[in-house]
Design a protein around this nucleic acid. Structure first.
Ligand SMILES: [Mn+2]
Ligand SMILES: [Mn+2]
Ligand SMILES: [Zn+2]
Ligand SMILES: [Zn+2]
Lengths: 136, 136
DNA sequence: GGGCTTATCGCAACTCTTCGCAATAGAGGG
DNA sequence: CCCTCTATTGCGAAGAGTTGCGATAAGCCC
């Protein structure tokens, strides 16, 4: 079933605004912010309110089409749920970002699950620290 | 040397406001937010502006007296740098928080350092996931 | 203690995000 | 195609945090 049909089957609705948010996420190469998405949509459809974009990102996340991560500190970064999962290393000094294969994080996830019954999503937040250059 | 002297030695100044922020952090049992600190100070000294509290937390972090972590999503949590370091598990469903010994995170830190030359601070952000109860 | 330098402050303005509410418009059924 | 129900929207307002700027006061030297 297509996305629209799936959304309707769950009692939600497929609106113009929701479709525009999905489109913006498809166009975006990497993780984007709600503010970037809002700005790109309003460039062509200025009547669409930022709050609608924020609400749609949350709705689409509940529906399973979208996920978010946190790279540097506060900002929430969004991406399609079907994108390749991966971890991030972010340098607190120079701000450089680096993607890492998800399986490096697996052993810790397994241990947290064994010792604390906790199912960790280690890709949700970037790992903060000092990159090779900055650590000197 | 005491904190005030150390701060002056670094060319910074020990102001009433800075001392009040340090005091608030000493009174706080756990991680607190800038907003909580600001509110507790303004209860007695309403003339002290919130922006001053934010700026002082950053300054004190640069000076090495204060650190911050990120528990749930947006909020930055502050604590004294000399407090016992530890990791956090936060459930994305029920919001429960759990502290974990820092050494559970060590193996991953060691691996990131070996394979990527990255000195990870794994206590900086909480690990997000599903707690035992919510995972079912 | 008085004077000088400038780190720091209070304030106002601004950005990003959230929220309540009345109006709008998807969806499904007839 | 029309009707009904209610999910969703746009708007206004508010909260949390940041930033530029002129005023204040900490620290240092005499
Ligand atoms: Mn941080
Ligand atoms: Mn999150
Ligand atoms: Zn770096
Ligand atoms: Zn839970």
């Amino acid at each position: 079933m297509d996305i629209a049909g799936d959304i309707r089957a769950k009692g939600r609705r497929m609106t113009v605004q929701r479709r525009l948010v999905l489109d913006a996420l498809r166009r975006a190469r990497h993780h984007t912010t709600a503010e970037e998405i809002s700005r790109s949509i309003r460039a062509r459809y200025p009547q669409i309110d930022p709050s609608t974009v924020y609400r749609n990102l949350e709705a689409l996340e509940q529906l399973g089409y979208v996920t978010h991560t946190h790279l540097d500190d506060r900002v929430t970064r969004w991406r399609r749920a079907d994108a390749e999962p991966h971890g991030h290393l972010v340098c607190r000094r120079c701000g450089s970002e680096q993607e890492i294969p998800i399986d490096i994080l697996e052993p810790l996830a397994k241990r947290l699950r064994g010792e604390h019954g906790f199912r960790a999503d280690l890709a949700h937040s970037a790992v903060v620290g000092l990159c090779r250059k900055c650590a000197g």
